[in-house]
Nucleic acid binder design. Structure first.
Length: 563
RNA sequence: CGGGGCGUAGCGCAGCCCGGUUAGCGCGCCUGCCUUGGGAGCAGGAGGCCGCAGGUUCGAAUCCUGCCGCCCCGACCA
């Protein structure tokens, strides 16, 4: 491609709206432009990268027996009502105004719809069906450029098996394919145990990339590799011993004391001697009091595993249930189920709210005074706590979710009546898995991890083009001639060459552009070297310009790309 | 959806508080000359519904009201 005739609108300055590095660089390098919040157009160079990612994914999906589909994004709403997911998605699903259609945010229903019409016998199983296609989600707040969009590309696949053992195989082969895909895409990633959330199902893992722009929080152990989404992460933390002597309970006036910090300061005690109370309404009606040690935060995802639906109680509800406001609630006299975090097991001489405004109670003994408390792990893991596997210090940081794999089981096949006959002629629901990869996130995460002050540093797999041939002064005949010769030779070999043949651009301009765009190999043809029969060969990864004889450069490119 | 910020040329910004000639600056763009090893120089030029609508005023980019858009924090996130 001749750069003089290619649309690559690079920017010297970063647009004001872009904040994260990948967003800034994708705009500056002329890869993407925004159309509307969370809706992006891919320009020629950016789309080439998307196509490279697509190729990698296709190869690896085909290698595990995946069959590529292309399903419609425009779906009749009735299909989504079969699984009650119109309600589950709520406002996140786009609805059309002038017909009863929705824009698909994912495709479990549509794949299951086809499966139930086609798959009838165990002999036809397993099946792995996938597609690379546009998804629509009406995100309340799109952000970080292409990382969280309202329209995005997803590779989604679905497995249909006759047994749970076979589902494990389909799931494991996806997990392995995902590792190969992300490795080939040059990403430093890790896999975490995750919550299957509203997707339902029995098991799930996420493929994550550490990034300040991430929206998930993960706990990760450097030494043994334990990793989990903080929604489900656990940790070991030094157990707090029971005092040898239990005091009797006593009431204390605590005017204006609301938080644990204020309470521990007021009483000159350690925060871990306080039991914090939070009241939740579960399954729409039942009040549950959750007791946490000191300032420990409640992990609501863990609560949701116990009760399917959980929300904090409103202030009026608190008043009705306990007779007190949020800062003065405690377990004694609470009418309802009480859950306590494991850290409070067997503790005594604790302080908590008195269920009377401006009063707290001391001398609480969990064994003696709150015998009904169910002890469960409910904490949000904090950095520095012990890894549940090896005990080393655990790290907690933000990350971007690149891919997510789920063992769905029979949730969708049951709801939609997608059944097959086993060897005995007995019918069963298909056992399903679903597996997704966000293509834009692969691209953005790569840029997040592979850039320097000058621009993007593509690897061989994802680079929009393979070679950047730069003629420094195209008005000089000998430079133009040499560039043309090289361009023709390299393209004849089947290499993708971007040829900067612009006549007016200054050398510095061209080199800045090349570094921004980040094609792996730069071949720089300039007056200074050509007189000696040389040109410069630069790898974007190391920035070293190597003098190479005109006659040797094609060989070096062939070697680099193994062609 | 709550909180905050911003909206002036393709991009980055000034002007607004305190209303008043023809709305400026840098980069980019066009023409010509010149220049060619890290985003050159000179000269000339084009490009604005000052986000939109309404209001106040003799007069609004500037003051007031409403709306829209974008960004950030939070909530949400299959």
């Amino acid at each position: 491609m001749r750069q003089s005739k290619t649309f690559i609108p690079t920017l010297k300055e970063a647009p004001n709206d872009a904040v994260v590095p990948s967003h800034i660089l994708m705009l500056r390098a002329g890869l993407v432009r925004m159309l509307s919040a969370g809706v992006y157009s891919f320009l020629p160079m950016g789309y080439k990268v998307i196509k490279k990612i697509t190729e990698v994914i296709r190869e690896e999906m085909d290698a595990i027996g995946g069959q590529e589909f292309h399903l419609p994004a425009l779906n009749p709403i009735e299909i989504w009502e079969e699984t009650d997911r119109v309600k589950a998605f709520g406002d996140t699903m786009f609805h059309l105004k002038n017909r009863d259609y929705v824009l698909a945010p994912t495709h479990e229903e549509i794949m299951t719809y086809h499966a139930r019409r086609v798959l009838q016998s165990y002999k036809e199983l397993p099946q792995v069906w996938y597609q690379i296609q546009t998804k629509f989600r009406n995100e309340a707040r799109p952000r970080s450029g292409v990382i969280r969009g309202r329209q995005f590309l997803m590779k989604d696949s679905y497995s249909f098996d006759a047994s749970w053992e076979d589902l494990d195989k389909s799931y494991d082969s996806h997990a392995a394919a995902y590792r190969r895909i992300f490795e080939r895409c040059g990403l430093k990633f890790f896999v975490v145990g995750a919550s299957s959330g509203a997707m339902g199902g029995t098991g799930s893992e996420e493929f994550m990339v550490r990034s300040a722009a991430g929206e998930d929080t993960v706990a990760h152990c450097e030494s043994c590799g334990y990793a989990a989404n903080s929604e489900v992460a656990t940790s070991v933390i030094q157990a707090l011993a029971r005092d040898s002597e239990s005091k009797d309970i006593f009431e204390i006036s605590t005017p204006n004391i609301k938080s644990i910090d204020e309470l521990s300061a007021f009483l000159s005690i350690n925060e871990s001697q306080c039991a914090k109370s939070r009241v939740y309404i579960v399954n729409g009606k039942e009040p549950v009091l959750v007791l946490m040690c000191g300032n420990d935060e409640v992990n609501e995802t863990k609560l949701e595993k116990i009760f399917s639906e959980v929300r904090p109680a409103h202030p009026e509800e608190l008043q009705n249930l306990t007779g007190a406001e949020a800062g003065s609630i405690g377990p004694l006299g609470f009418k309802g189920r009480i859950l306590a975090d494991l850290r409070l097991k067997d503790r005594n001489n604790l302080y908590s709210g008195a269920n009377k405004n401006e009063y707290h109670i001391g001398g609480i003994d969990m064994v003696r005074d709150v015998p009904s408390a169910e002890l469960v792990d409910l904490r949000i893991v904090q950095p520095g706590e012990g890894c549940p596997n090896c005990g080393a210090n655990i790290d907690v940081f933000p990350a971007i979710e690149l891919g997510h794999i789920f063992k769905l089981g029979t949730r969708y096949s049951e709801a939609m009546g997608a059944r097959f006959l086993d060897v005995n002629g007995k019918d069963h629901p298909l056992i399903m898995g679903s597996y997704g990869i966000g293509l834009e996130r692969v691209m953005a995460c790569f840029v997040e991890q592979n850039h320097d002050d000058f621009g993007i540093i593509w690897n061989k797999e994802l680079a929009p083009m393979q070679v950047h041939l730069i003629g420094l002064n195209m008005k000089k005949q000998e430079i133009a001639d040499e560039c043309e010769r090289l361009y023709s030779e390299l393209t004849t070999l089947g290499l993708q060459v971007l040829f900067d043949d612009r006549k007016d651009a200054q050398p510095g301009f061209k080199m800045k552009d090349a570094d921004l765009l980040g094609i792996p190999i730069q071949i720089i043809v300039g007056e200074r070297k050509i007189k000696e029969g040389l040109l410069e060969f630069k790898l974007r990864t190391d920035s070293v310009k190597l003098d190479v004889a005109l006659t040797d450069v094609v060989g070096k490119v062939k070697e680099f790309y193994s062609v």
